[in-house]
Design a protein around this nucleic acid. Structure first.
Lengths: 158, 158
DNA sequence: ATTTATCCCATGATATCCCAAATAATCCCA
DNA sequence: TGGGATTATTTGGGATATCATGGGATAAAT
């Protein structure tokens, strides 16, 4: 499974295109579909993204024959209906659809944020705020996300 | 199996034709039959659609019920009796039959809603209502649709 | 003969492709 | 360890192809 790390800020051009960071594209290079799958985050003003395999895993619990279950009904409606396949152009860019631009309040710039098996696209300022808040809360809670090892040898949680 | 994602709203013309979104047609391109299979949803005022392979899977599911049971009886009656094959015209459109238009309350516009292995056709306003509720519930439940796999390999839903 | 469905072409809008320029990262050799 | 050269990446924009849509003409059905 792909692994997305670090944060990159790229420009959204007049046509609504953005370069997906080369490192992220490399992580997706194994996939049959040359592009990403994206949908609005339920919790934040951000776009969640991954490869096709990731989307298939999210939907793995959904049975083809399951036309009657209420839970799956709402979940697939929220997931698949809002998801979009965004293909790379020759330069590794994707065209952001209107609904995602609106949901994430994207303008001239987009922040690509690695989150391990997936990545997110944020409005850079919104992400800075969110991150500051996350750090504040982590400090408050005594930084429970701590690697095993001697004190002071941690990875400097961001 | 085909993967239908995202939502597209297309126009129903005076003759009752609608373009099936190009992305959906591409997902069906492997199929022998150039068109879709459609039947009224049991749960909603919507039309459920898929390729022929999907219909065959539904048939296989029906086989697992006892041949003489009430379930089998109602299912086959409801499923196959109401299902219709809608062929594409040269431009990738289908002609919506009267009974489906009535069932889904379709007028000038039709929303094509991807739901993974199948897709649905809705009246756009009706779907917007349903969609809002589905997203609300998904957020509330914290996306319980977990990817299949060992613990720790999940998508890290935020 | 009237209706209903299919085929075919035209058109505007949109997305994709392709080439070229700027920018950033990396390498190499002194 | 510099600093210039080389390569990779990002960005811009014009040309091209694709898509959604409309409507006339043709064919089939009743």
């Amino acid at each position: 499974m792909a692994m997305f790390l670090s944060t990159t800020i790229n420009k959204v051009d007049r046509k609504g295109r953005v370069s997906v960071p080369a490192a992220f594209r490399a992580a997706l290079s194994e996939q049959a579909f040359r592009g990403i799958v994206a949908f609005p985050s339920f919790k934040h003003a951000a776009v969640q993204c991954g490869g096709m395999d990731w989307m298939e895993k999210l939907g793995a619990g959904v049975d083809t024959f399951d036309l009657f279950s209420d839970e799956h009904d709402t979940l697939t409606a929220a997931l698949f209906a809002n998801a979009q396949q965004l293909a790379f152009d020759g330069q590794g860019r994707v065209l952001l659809p209107e609904n995602l631009i609106v949901h994430a309040s994207l303008a001239e710039q987009a922040a690509f944020v690695g989150r391990g098996p997936l990545f997110e696209i944020w409005n850079p300022e919104a992400f800075a705020d969110y991150q500051a808040e996350a750090v504040r809360q982590a400090a408050e809670k005594g930084l429970t996300l701590r690697p095993a090892g001697p004190p002071g040898s941690d990875g400097g949680q961001t």
